[in-house]
């Protein structure tokens, strides 16, 4: 299976990932190579196999519904690119 330059652009858009236009062809080539590798998987019949998400098949642990987090707003905001009055700033979304 091979991916085209347009496929790569589409995937990059889904991932909100900027890629240099001169790299697109090499990504297409690398991803196609990876997909070729993955076609090996279809050789194996997995119809009655349960997918495995956790090595111990452990289910999500639940905890009691109490507040455990401390308020670290100032500490967290001190490492943010842009904040004002306790809020994270981003470019205007709604005109």
């Amino acid at each position: 299976m091979s991916l085209t330059a347009d496929d790569v652009k589409k995937i990059a858009h889904l991932a909100r990932l900027g890629i240099d236009s001169q790299d697109i062809d090499s990504y297409a080539k690398d991803l196609s190579g990876m997909l070729d590798l993955m076609t090996q998987m279809s050789e194996l019949d997995t119809n009655n196999v349960e997918p495995m998400a956790h090595p111990m098949d452990q289910a999500q642990r639940l905890r009691t519904d109490v507040v455990t987090e401390h308020n670290n707003r100032e500490k967290f905001q001190s490492i943010a690119p842009q904040v004002e009055a306790g809020l994270y700033l981003v470019p205007k979304v709604i005109e």
Binding site: L3, V8, I11, A15, R16, L17, G18, I19, D20, L31
Partner: peptide, 18 residues
């Protein structure tokens, strides 16, 4: 994301997203 991730990381993000 485009300016701060290197090529290998981008390759894997693209593969995974696909």
């Amino acid at each position: 994301r485009g300016e701060a991730f290197g090529k290998e990381v981008k390759r894997r993000i693209l593969m995974g997203t696909y």
